[in-house]
Design a binder for these strands. Structure first.
Length: 616
RNA sequence: GGGGGCGUAGCUCAAUUGGUUAGAGUGCCGGCCUGUCACGCCGGAGGUUGCGGGUUCAAGUCCCGUCGCCCUCGCCA
């Protein structure tokens, strides 16, 4: 039986159902007062003579009680939105709920108004559910009602707010840059937006506000920041969405240290304000080369050891032809990691998994050794580790009996990649990674500096910028082998995640032109693509540099999450679709014609049929 | 684009060698219960086994195709 209470809703701006308190607010001090609460019915327990309702809003949960007479004549169910008015009463001792901040009291309901009915929820609106991501995304409006999801979004909001205050405290100015901008063939694939006014021409959504922020420096803004949406049409990962948010910044008349210091201040202030954590600054610094050689990664997780060890000196002692051959190759390396206790902790089955992982990354196989009592031991490399050879190796690795040694031989980049991945894998397996995200020691920040300027691209047979083409070289004379040039780019790394990257930029028009030349971009091409930047650099450009931090990532890490999906209100799936609103979707032909776009090849039409191939 | 995993009730899962009417928990609906808060007890409804084809006397199960989700390599200046 539905009450007529919904009829009483339209009673003007001072409706009687308006809440006086939130559902997370009531304490013993409120006992005796009459209150009105608004919220969602999170749970009901009918005990015959007394009826309990858990009322939930984003502030918390409050238990309210209904007399039989009231519960009998009022219909409501899970997730209905109701208003209750009643008296706050103490719970008798023994009935208090210590789990709930409001657990000392409850509200004895005199009146209940149904504000909105609800369909049965597709899954429980509660923390710790095991519902498939797909279902949660499809019903995101319900998913976000779950306290842990609400908490994530609130944490994100506070984090961003604190960042804004911290930058403003250092005189940074927030400036918005265009979302409809110019396509750049370099870098990631652009999302394109057809122009209606200019047939056949397209805007691109920004991969980052890079050029705009440099131009703001030329304009004399001196210190800029922005909470910037960025778009990259590339395949997704757990820590990658096609649209994501950066805390982007740029500053003038600076070198690396100035940028680092500005960020260290911001991070220290934000962690303190939002989480009460006192970060130690300055953050650790290591060169790219050191990061690769010690951890096999340019985003090393510094919370544990398992470092890579170079074995060039040991290989001749081993007499292992395969390793000797690898060393003789150009950029050949033989390296290993020693997994403490891995001799017994890593099973035969797990070794198979490690090996297939190594092969997946391009290794021929996985050489390993489990040292035994007297220098022998098990594994394909064991017979090269007998006697002095084994003793020498163990001394280099700092290991011994009971450990597991994993080798990798080959081209340097491959060795780094394989051992870097195995290092992470083993650390996870052996649970060497300290858990937690609530104390300073859970956060290992590090600046990685001195990246290579260029990377060789096999596909195009040309050098590409490792960072981006506006990055200043360490040596502005560009002397020496182009492949060996180092850049003034840097990354900030946290617990094995790349939080963001930046660089000191080129502020000299002539040097910028030379870099374009090294990238194989002709002067005509450079003018067409980046003419406005070159013009700006020629109009009085201050030395400048900056950095952009992936907000989704840092927010996820500070919540102890392993992916960024749960800190984004409406994220996309692995195939870049939005399951809630159904984007992307076909559009009617009329709409396509307006923007001068014709269908080509596969695809659905707005009418649901398949599009005819172009030219048909 | 490649590799791997998953897809059965609203949700989470089970179903022997291919074999009777596809089950359980939870949620939902109804009934009982005055102190629960993962309430308890009794009853009920709820299924295009992702979709399409094939093999077979017989398919949730085997084969082919396809779609979706997750992880991952490539990719992500």
């Amino acid at each position: 039986m539905t009450t007529d209470s919904t009829q009483t809703l339209a009673t003007g701006s001072r409706a009687s159902w308006r809440r006086t308190h939130t559902c997370g607010e009531l304490r013993s001090s409120h006992i005796g007062s009459t209150v009105t609460l608004n919220g969602w019915v999170a749970g009901r327990r009918d005990h015959g003579g007394i009826y309990f309702v858990d009322l939930r809003d984003r502030y918390g949960m409050t238990q309210v009680t209904l007399a039989t007479e009231l519960s009998d004549r009022t219909q409501f169910s899970t997730e209905w939105v109701v208003a209750i008015t009643g008296e706050v009463v103490a719970r008798e001792s023994g009935n208090a709920n210590a789990e709930l901040p409001t657990g000392e009291v409850e509200v004895r309901v005199k009146e209940l108004v149904v504000l909105s009915q609800a369909t049965v929820p597709p899954f429980e609106v509660d923390d710790g559910i095991e519902t498939a991501v797909e279902i949660r995304l499809r019903h995101r409006h319900v998913d976000l009602r779950r306290p842990e999801m609400t908490r994530n979004l609130i944490h994100r909001s506070r984090f961003i707010g604190a960042m804004r205050r911290a930058f403003e405290a250092q005189d940074f100015v927030e400036v918005e840059t265009p979302i409809l901008t110019k396509a750049t063939p370099e870098g990631a694939r652009d999302y394109l937006v057809p122009s209606r006014v200019h047939p056949g021409e397209f805007y691109a959504l920004p991969q980052s506000p890079q050029i705009f922020k440099q131009i703001l420096m030329v304009s004399g803004l001196d210190r800029y920041f922005q909470v910037a949406r960025c778009f990259r049409d590339e395949d997704l990962r757990a820590d990658r969405q096609p649209e994501f948010t950066q805390l982007d910044m740029e500053m003038s008349f600076v070198a690396e240290d100035d940028v680092f210091e500005a960020w260290e201040k911001v991070m220290a202030s934000v962690f303190d304000e939002v989480m009460g954590i006192q970060l130690a600054t300055p953050f650790a610094r290591l060169t790219w080369r050191e990061a690769m050689d010690r951890f096999g990664s340019d985003k090393p997780d510094l919370r544990y050891g398992l470092e890579l060890v170079d074995l060039a000196q040991w290989v001749p002692l081993s007499g292992f032809k395969v390793f000797e051959g690898a060393l003789a190759e150009k950029n050949g390396r033989v390296m290993a990691i020693c997994v403490p206790g891995g001799g017994s902790a890593i099973s035969r089955g797990q070794m198979k998994t490690l090996e297939s992982r190594a092969k997946e990354l391009g290794a021929q196989g996985l050489a390993w050794w489990k040292p035994g009592e007297s220098g022998g031991g098990a594994g394909p490399v064991a017979r090269f580790c007998e006697g002095d050879s084994g003793a020498d190796l163990l001394a280099r690795l700092g290991g011994g009996e009971g450990d597991l040694v994993l080798f990798c031989a080959g081209e340097q980049r491959l060795v780094w990649k394989v051992l870097g991945a195995l290092r992470t894998d083993c650390a996870r397996r052996l649970e060497l990674i300290p858990k937690g995200h609530t104390a300073a020691e859970h956060y290992c920040f590090a600046w990685v500096v001195d990246f290579p300027m260029y990377e060789w691209d096999e596909e195009t047979g040309a050098f590409m910028s490792a960072h981006h083409p506006f990055t200043a070289p360490v040596d502005p004379t560009l002397a020496g082998d182009q492949g060996e040039l180092m850049s003034r780019a840097y990354d900030l790394v946290l617990n094995g995640w790349e939080l963001g990257s930046g660089s000191i930029r080129i502020h000299d028009q002539k040097l910028q032109a030379r870099i374009f030349d090294q990238l194989g971009i002709s002067p005509q091409e450079a003018r067409a693509k980046f003419g406005f930047l070159l013009d700006a650099l020629g109009s009085g450009a201050p030395p400048h540099g900056g950095f952009a931090m992936g907000l989704d990532r840092v927010v996820a890490l500070t919540l102890g999450l392993e992916g960024i999906r749960d800190v984004i209100a409406f994220p996309k799936t692995t195939s870049a679709t939005d399951l809630m609103c159904g984007a992307p979707s076909p559009v009617p032909d009329r709409q396509l014609a307006e923007v001068h776009v014709a269908r080509a090849g596969r695809g659905r039409t707005a009418e649901g049929g398949a599009a005819s191939p172009a030219g048909a």
